[in-house]
Amino acid sequence: MSIFIQTRNRVSKFLQAFFRKKRTRIGIYGPPNAGKTTLANRIARDWTGEEMGQVSEIPHETRRASRKSDITISGSNGSSITIDIVDTPGVTTKIDYMEFLEYGVTRDEAVVRAREATEGVAEAMHWLREDIDGVIYMLDSTEDPFMQVNIMMIGIIESRNLPVIIAANKIDLPAASPQRIRSAFPQHPVIPISCLEGKNVEDLYEKMVNHFR
C-alpha cells in the first residue's frame, strides 16, 4: 500500500510540475519617470482589461513592486506567452526628499515619500536577484541613455543572464531619440514606443512573445 501511495504521489507531483510550470515573471525596470507604470497599465488593459498602478509626473510614485499574474500576450503568427508583469519602483543611487517639495507636497509627506522610495529601490533590486525571469528596461528617449544607473542596471541584468528588451519610450515627444538608445545598448533589442499614445506597442508585444519564451 505504501508503495502505491508513494507512486501516486510521485505521479501527481510530476503532473503538477508539468501543468503548473512556474510562470515567467517579467520585470519592468528603469529610472524614475520613464513610463514603467504607464506601460504596465497598457499591457494589463490590452490583455486583461484591468489597470495596474498609479501613473504620476512626480518621480517615485511607484514605491512598491506590484505584480499582475497570468497575462497572455499573443503574437501575429499565433504564438503566445503567459507571463506575470512586475511593475517596479524606479532605480536610482540618490533620493532627496526636497525634490518632492517642488510638486507641492508638505515636508512631512515628502520625507515619508522619500523613505518609501528608498525601500522601493531596495525591493526592486531584490526582485531582480530572486524572482525575475526577463526584463523590459524602460528608458525615456528624450533623456541621456548613458546615465550611470542605466549602465549599471543593464550590467547587473546581463550578469544574471536574463533576456532583456529595451523600450525607448516617449517617442511622441519631439526631443525623442531612440537612435541614441540603440547606440548605447547595441547588444539588446530596442523598441521605440509611446506608452501614452500606444504607438508601436504591437511591436513590443511581438518582441516579447519571441524574446521571453
Partner: peptide
C-alpha cells in the same frame, strides 16, 4: 555587477 547591486541597495538603506 553583484557588488554594484548590493551597493545600490545599501545606499538606499542609509539615506
Amino acid at each position: 555587477p553583484e557588488e554594484q547591486s548590493t551597493l545600490i541597495e545599501m545606499t538606499m538603506r542609509e539615506i
